[in-house]
């Protein structure tokens, strides 16, 4: 590709060393990135005896998400139903193909698969949570389609405490370990927002207007 590609050839003419040496240097750097630049603040919070889930919850709320804690999967299902009642939500629901995300199925019409755009509520399962930024990690799959993360006005996401990691770098190994890299990985931090009119913060422009996160423990 290097020889026939005029852009790469133009770059190569200005670079030091041989093309082989540069390829080797890049391959080495990719395989062994330098020590991560993770923020010390997370470690400091953990040293105070707080859990990753605690730190995650605090920072996610700072970004405008509402975090609900539940002790067990059963309690998480109850929490989902409580959110439905308290927020007076109505269907249809687009939900992940996951037993926990089915908790509201008797309350409204619910379907799995891609979102159509007419569902006011999406219920998703997060693959992970990043404590450093309070971000949910949602990975595209047949069970967890990407459109459900963006089309509904209210997005409810369930996350197991055990899936909360400290930093981005702690999630990458999970991603690298997959045989097939998913098409899309969404890191979601709070609801949709904009400052495009007079730099005034407004919530809910194209994506969800509200983000509820149910973080649940294993009940032990």
């Amino acid at each position: 590709m290097t020889d026939t590609n005029p852009v790469l050839a133009a770059i190569a003419r200005t670079r030091r060393g041989t093309a082989e040496a540069r390829a080797a240097a890049a391959a080495h750097r990719i395989a062994q990135p330098p020590q991560a630049t993770r923020l010390r603040a997370v470690a400091e919070e953990l040293a105070k005896g707080r859990s990753l889930a605690d730190v995650f919850a605090e920072i996610a709320e700072r970004a405008g998400a509402t975090v609900h804690r539940a002790a067990s999967p059963e309690a998480a299902a109850e929490t989902l139903r409580a959110i439905w009642r308290d927020k007076a939500l109505s269907g249809p629901i687009v939900r992940a193909d996951d037993p926990l995300c089915a908790a509201c199925d008797d309350l409204a019409e619910a379907h799995t698969g891609a979102a159509r755009g007419d569902e006011p509520v999406g219920i998703s399962r997060a693959a992970a949570g990043i404590a450093e930024t309070g971000s949910l990690v949602l990975v595209a799959a047949a069970e967890t389609p990407t459109t459900a993360n963006f089309l509904p006005e209210t997005h409810v996401v369930v996350l197991a405490e055990a899936d909360v990691v400290a930093a981005f770098e702690d999630f990458w190994p999970t991603l690298r370990a997959r045989n097939v890299l998913p098409r899309t990985v969404n890191l979601i931090t709070g609801p949709s927002r904009t400052g495009d009119i007079e730099l005034t913060l407004q919530i809910g422009v194209h994506g969800p207007r509200s983000l509820h996160i149910v973080v649940y423990g294993d009940g032990r």
């Binding site: 899309t184 969404n186 709070g190």
Partner: peptide, 12 residues
């Protein structure tokens, strides 16, 4: 912002 609302990694 400590993080923007949406950071998306996608390919292909």
């Amino acid at each position: 912002q400590h993080a923007s609302s949406y950071t998306t990694l996608s390919v292909g």
